[in-house]
C-alpha cells in the first residue's frame, strides 16, 4: 500500500516536471514584476505575489502563493527584511531548492540599492524597525535602474541561451529610463523642500529623491497604528510648521490622513506606491509619472 503510494507520487512528480520554455518568475511585489517584464519581455512568465492594494509587510503565505513558489525558477523580492513575516515560510515550504536564499534563483533587490535609515540601535519599543534599513527602496528611480542591471545579469545566468537578449532589453530599458528620469527630475525640481506629512516611512526614498521635507508621520512608531493622541500632537506641530500635504499609499487606510488633512486644511494625497496602485500605473514609467502628477497637483 505504502510502496504503491510512493511509486505513484514519483510517477506524478516525473510527469509534472517543469517545461523549460520560458523562465517562471515570481516576484514579491508588483514593482519587481513590472521590472522583470521590462527586462525579460516574453522570455519570462511573471507573476507578483502581492498587489498594490496589499501591505507587503503583512501578507500570509497562502496556499496559492506556495503553489506559485513551488514552480518558480526565479524569486525576486525587495529583501531588507520587508517580507520577513511571510517570505521565509514561502521559501521553506515550497519544496523548491532553486529559490532559497543564496541560490541563483533568489534575487534580493536591496543588495543593489543605496539603503536609507539603517538603524543604529534595535529595540521593539521603537516599533517595527527593520534591522537592514528602510526597505521601500523602489521609490527612488535610480534604485530601479541599479536593480535592472542586477536582474538582467541574473536572468542571463539562469537562462544563458538568451543572455544577449536580456542584456539588449536592459540597455534599451536603461536608455528609456534615463531619459524619463531626466524629465521627471526637471518636472519635480519645484517640489524640492516642499514640507509633507507621511503615513508610514514607506516614502523615504521618494522624499530623498525629490528633496521633500518630512514634518511628521501619522504612525506614532513605524508599523504602529496611528493613535488619536499622536494625531492631535501632529496637528499642533503643523500649526507651527505647516505641511503642504499628507501622503499615503493606495494600500494604507485613508482615515488617519483624511482626519489630519481636513483639520490642517491641506490635501490628503493617495499615491499609487507601486505598479497597479492607481488606474494610470500599468508599468514603472506610469508609476513615477502618476506619482509626480499627483504631487505637482497637490503643490501648485
Amino acid at each position: 500500500m505504502n510502496r504503491l503510494l510512493i511509486l505513484t507520487l514519483i510517477a506524478i512528480g516525473l510527469a509534472a516536471s517543469p517545461a523549460w520554455a520560458t523562465l517562471n518568475v515570481l516576484t514579491c511585489e508588483p514593482e519587481w514584476a513590472a521590472l522583470t517584464q521590462e527586462v525579460a519581455g516574453d522570455l519570462a512568465e511573471v507573476t507578483s505575489a502581492t498587489s498594490a492594494l496589499q501591505d507587503p509587510h503583512h501578507i500570509e503565505a497562502r496556499p496559492a502563493l506556495l503553489a506559485k513558489a513551488r514552480r518558480a525558477d526565479l524569486l525576486v523580492c525587495t529583501g531588507a527584511e520587508l517580507e520577513l513575516g511571510w517570505l521565509p515560510l514561502l521559501q521553506r515550504e515550497a519544496g523548491n531548492g532553486r529559490i532559497q536564499p543564496g541560490q541563483p534563483g533568489y534575487l534580493d533587490a536591496a543588495q543593489f540599492a543605496r539603503i536609507l535609515e539603517r538603524p543604529t540601535a534595535l529595540d521593539r519599543s521603537m516599533g517595527d524597525v527593520h534591522a537592514a534599513g528602510n526597505p521601500h527602496l523602489h521609490l527612488n528611480p535610480h534604485n530601479i535602474a541599479r536593480v535592472a542591471d542586477g536582474l538582467a545579469k541574473r536572468l542571463g545566468e539562469l537562462d544563458p541561451a538568451h543572455a544577449a537578449r536580456y542584456a539588449e532589453r536592459n540597455t534599451d530599458f536603461q536608455s528609456r529610463w534615463a531619459a524619463a528620469m531626466a524629465r521627471w527630475e526637471q518636472q519635480g525640481a519645484r517640489l524640492k523642500g516642499v514640507p509633507v506629512v507621511v503615513h508610514h516611512r514607506n516614502w523615504s526614498y521618494l522624499v530623498d529623491w525629490l528633496g521633500l521635507t518630512v514634518i511628521g508621520e501619522l504612525e506614532p512608531k513605524p508599523g504602529m497604528e496611528p493613535t488619536a493622541s499622536h494625531l492631535a500632537e501632529l496637528l499642533e506641530t503643523l500649526k507651527a510648521t505647516p505641511a503642504r500635504m499628507v501622503l499615503r499609499a493606495a494600500y494604507e487606510p485613508s482615515k488617519a490622513s483624511e482626519w489630519l488633512a481636513s483639520r490642517a486644511n491641506i490635501p490628503a494625497v493617495e499615491l499609487p506606491y507601486t505598479v497597479g496602485g492607481s488606474a494610470g500605473t500599468k508599468d514603472l514609467f506610469g508609476l513615477f509619472e502618476d506619482t509626480l502628477n499627483r504631487l505637482l497637483q497637490a503643490a501648485p
Binding site: 503510494l5 512528480g13 519544496g95
Partner: peptide, 15 residues
C-alpha cells in the same frame, strides 16, 4: 515527507 504538486491549484500530500 511532504510533496507539493507543481500545479496552479495548491495540492500537497504528506506522510
Amino acid at each position: 515527507v511532504r510533496w507539493l504538486a507543481p500545479t496552479e491549484l495548491f495540492m500537497e500530500v504528506g506522510a
